[in-house]
Design a protein around this nucleic acid. Sequence first.
DNA 1: ATTAATGCAAAAACTTTGCAGCAAG
DNA 2: CTTGCTGCAAAGTTTTTGCATTAAT
Lengths: 163, 163
Amino acid sequence: MGEWMDKARTRLREENYRLTRQREILCRVFIDNPGRHLTAEEIREYTIGTDHPLGLATVYRTLSILEDVGLIGRIDMGDGVARYEFTGGDFRPHYHLTCLECGSVTEVEWPGIKEVGDVPGIDGFEVTDHSLLFFGICSHCRNRTEDERNSNSREGGDSYAKR
Amino acid sequence: MGEWMDKARTRLREENYRLTRQREILCRVFIDNPGRHLTAEEIREYTIGTDHPLGLATVYRTLSILEDVGLIGRIDMGDGVARYEFTGGDFRPHYHLTCLECGSVTEVEWPGIKEVGDVPGIDGFEVTDHSLLFFGICSHCRNRTEDERNSNSREGGDSYAKR
DNA sequence: ATTAATGCAAAAACTTTGCAGCAAG
DNA sequence: CTTGCTGCAAAGTTTTTGCATTAAT
């Protein structure tokens, strides 16, 4: 799947950003973790094992650039940490279901999404963007017994805790 | 409108919280600022002029309690500061339009809100809560000329700036 | 009198910034 | 070789916490 890397490289060059090793590495982290919603810290940790760990400041600065050029999207779930997901520049309309118990993030492509986008033309307010998040309990957590539920064992979901 | 204060006092007592002067003051700040979406810092500032300023730690602790008992609602617009609005315990379905230019927050009661609430029954995920925010430009800002727009004069809207 | 709540200051958590050195073009 | 990028450490913001004092019941 080098096509994503190509796309990323192209977008960066289009916007006159230099193609540095660190920026490629950061893109690779996303490409190697499809469907995940990573925090800056998680990204930094991911690069520690490699031959070229990234400084946290660089991670933040690069995330800001990648968001700017539309390669990644930022999700704020209200828990004090920003998460990012790779989009590759494509607009793929979807929302997020966050499990309050295990922290897993599921994506939904809801047909009603179009309606939401252009709902309130109220009072001449021009809507340019919106954010829709769902919170609740995922099927996996619902199917566990109380006992299992009390042991806070999780399995690979993005971690999450409401503030 | 002492009825709101009565309601607040009742709810706090119901949940076995002590009725302190600070808690009454904090409720009063909300009641005196209807329709506003206040940050902890704004609330603290508001009490400075009075004969009984609140410590910021108390503001945060009290906000947490008031949210717990359902007297206020918390709104996170992704700009790194939590805002709170008084609900008085009533569930009044509405969403927020945030102007990216002047920071004003407008409320909408959108008919489609019910659909949003119970959209994704997907994979057995049980939705218990959701957050829907709209961003854009309010009619007031749209109607200003470029010149006026460049002078960053605002008029009393809740302040806001995307991170 | 008990026990919870306050206020201060310190710490925590996340993110941004200054600056000297490094690397992409 | 020029200008932008990185990394470190320091600073900035918002929120939380420890602890002695104060106030509510």
